[in-house]
């Protein structure tokens, strides 16, 4: 099953999964992606590996500038995809329920919680994680916000930091960093248990005032 197969079905339904579904009607039009042999295998008690293959779906997503052609179970979240399958562990898991912001990444330029984002819904999107923030890569010069976090000591244990930085960059890009109170409100989706908020606000103000491109 290739992505091309999938694209041909884009008109009405562009993807589907699961053994159960394989057994079901062809009415939704996604049927062509399912070879009859697989259908049979489902009915007759599938070998685990084949089952796995059919529980997985193709996904194409650009992550930090690299186009990823993947096959994943639809229940995989963007967060777990990054951390457990792509070894992009800069994006953190803090609550897994959209309640802490540690997993903040940019999808098509918007900051979102990767833990509540099914990876399948990022098909065709551009995802930026902390690893992809600095334009020259992880060993090159830092992004101004990363510099400012170091300068203002906007972190302690460092675990919420990638999420804070991704959020901070978005905060400025969105135009919500005009004063400390506005920054506080628009950074409230990122919990820092070490309590570095006051320094984080200073870091964001500094970048905003500096006028560098973020």
């Amino acid at each position: 099953m290739t992505n091309q197969d999938n694209n041909e079905e884009q008109a009405e339904n562009s993807g589907s999964s699961r053994r159960g579904f394989l057994k079901q009607s062809a009415a939704l039009g996604a049927f062509a992606m399912t070879p009859p042999s697989a259908m049979k295998a489902v009915d007759t008690g599938l070998h685990e590996k084949i089952a796995t293959a059919f529980e997985q779906m193709p996904l194409q997503v650009e992550i930090n500038g690299t186009l990823q052609r993947l096959k994943i179970e639809p229940r995989v979240t963007l967060l777990d995809l990054l951390r457990e399958q792509l070894n992009l562990t800069g994006t953190k898991k803090g609550c897994d329920l959209g309640q802490c912001g540690a997993c903040t990444v940019h999808v098509d330029g918007q900051r979102v919680n990767a833990c509540l984002t099914l990876a399948m819904t990022t098909e065709g999107c551009k995802v930026t994680t902390i690893e992809g923030l600095a334009p020259a890569g992880p060993d090159g010069p830092l992004h101004p916000m990363q510099e400012a976090f170091i300068k203002h000591d906007g972190f302690q244990c460092g675990y919420c930091t990638p999420g804070q930085i991704m959020s901070a960059v978005a905060c400025i890009r969105e135009g919500h960093a005009d004063n400390p109170d506005e920054i506080r409100e628009y950074m409230s989706g990122n919990i820092c248990r070490c309590g570095a908020y006051s320094n984080i606000v200073d870091a964001i103000m500094d970048v905003k005032k500096g006028g560098q491109k973020v």
Partner: peptide, 21 residues
């Protein structure tokens, strides 16, 4: 002085226990 592990923490390079492959 700045935090000596600052760069690792702001780039996502710092590895926490669950992140060793």
């Amino acid at each position: 002085i700045n935090r000596v592990d600052g760069r690792l923490k702001v780039t996502g390079g710092a590895k926490y226990f669950a992140e060793f492959e």
